[in-house]
């Protein structure tokens, strides 16, 4: 193994990691407020990707406008799911919400196949996004750079939003204790819906980025990224936004290095490795690297 090869693989890992981070942020956001593992998160990613495709295809809109459309689409879907499914069962055990999110996921996936057909579709992006930028030994595509930058910008923006704005503080109060927050005059329904809107909008944007990067989208594309984002969020500490990003990068790097540094015959165990790592992290660091609550184990 040579140094350029190692650098190559590290860059691969970082880019894949920022992809996971992007998906995981939204996931952690929702978990942080409502303590719900939202299994349908990956399917909202799919919706975002198809919304992006529709926006690109119907009119030759500039990329920033497409992002805006995708954000809105994701937020709307997230709010609808929250209002119709999760709000009526608020107060039930955690597991209830989890099962409901599985059901939502099955509904979305089957609807997607019924309406869109199972065929993968090409996702073309403007040529300038595919251009190469040189950084000495490595060159990176504009879209990959955008993904990395977007992940970092979003962490900073979301962390400061939650920490410093009035609404953000209200959201954190909601996350701490519904009843006390209500007594403080916070409309917790609105806060939870907002968390879903933001989290789902982020998933949708992640879908757009996913499609832009790989050039192909399909109705079931979100399933595996959704699961892996969950793993990333757990590694970082579910509920922590910066933890999600950290977890995403760690997972991306670990996955690429697992494939890249071990013999090719082991590449087939890639997903087994990811979930094995998940179980290991849960056991050693039940609250993840940056998590703080302690309800994960006895």
């Amino acid at each position: 193994m040579t140094l350029p090869y190692l650098i190559d693989q590290l860059v691969n890992g970082l880019i894949l990691g920022s992809m996971y981070a992007l998906v995981a942020i939204g996931f952690s956001m929702i978990y942080g407020i409502v303590r719900l593992i939202n299994f349908a998160h990956g399917d909202i990613l799919t919706i975002g990707a198809f919304a992006g495709l529709a926006a690109f295809a119907s009119a030759d809109l500039p990329f920033p406008v497409v992002i805006l459309i995708v954000l809105v689409a994701g937020a709307v879907v997230g709010m609808v799911i929250e209002r119709t499914t999760f709000r009526p069962m608020r107060g039930s055990p955690q597991v209830t919400g989890f099962i409901a999110s599985l059901a939502v996921s099955i509904i979305l996936e089957n609807l997607a196949i019924m309406i869109l057909s199972a065929q993968p579709r090409t996702f073309r992006i403007p040529a300038y996004l595919n251009a190469l930028v040189d950084f000495g030994p490595v060159s990176i595509r504009v879209i990959d750079l955008m993904i990395v930058v977007l992940a970092i910008v979003l962490v900073i923006a979301l962390t400061s939003f939650v920490r410093f704005t009035k609404v953000g503080i209200a959201m954190r109060a909601t996350a701490e204790n519904y009843d006390v927050a209500r007594l403080m005059g916070i409309n917790i329904n609105r806060m939870i819906m907002l968390a879903f809107a933001i989290g789902s909008a982020l998933a949708a944007v992640a879908g757009l980025m996913w499609g832009s990067k790989y050039g192909q989208i399909s109705p079931l594309m979100g399933v595996l990224p959704g699961l892996k984002a969950f793993v990333a969020a757990v590694i970082g500490g579910v509920g922590s936004i910066s933890g999600a990003v950290l977890g995403g990068y760690i997972l991306g790097l670990a996955e690429v290095l697992f494939v890249g540094l071990l013999p090719p015959a082991l590449s087939g165990y890639r997903n087994a490795f990811v979930f094995g790592a998940l179980i290991l992290v849960l056991l050693v660091l039940p609250n993840g690297l940056l998590g703080r609550n302690t309800e994960t184990r006895a």
């Binding site: 090869y5 691969n12 790989y214 594309m221 090719p264 890639r270």
Partner: peptide, 22 residues
């Protein structure tokens, strides 16, 4: 000279591409 494997659901082949390159 190289025999690499992947799974149907994989979407990121970057690690395999780098190995191919090297």
């Amino acid at each position: 000279v190289l025999s690499d494997v992947f799974m149907t659901s994989d979407q990121d082949f970057s690690a395999l591409v780098s190995r191919l390159k090297s």
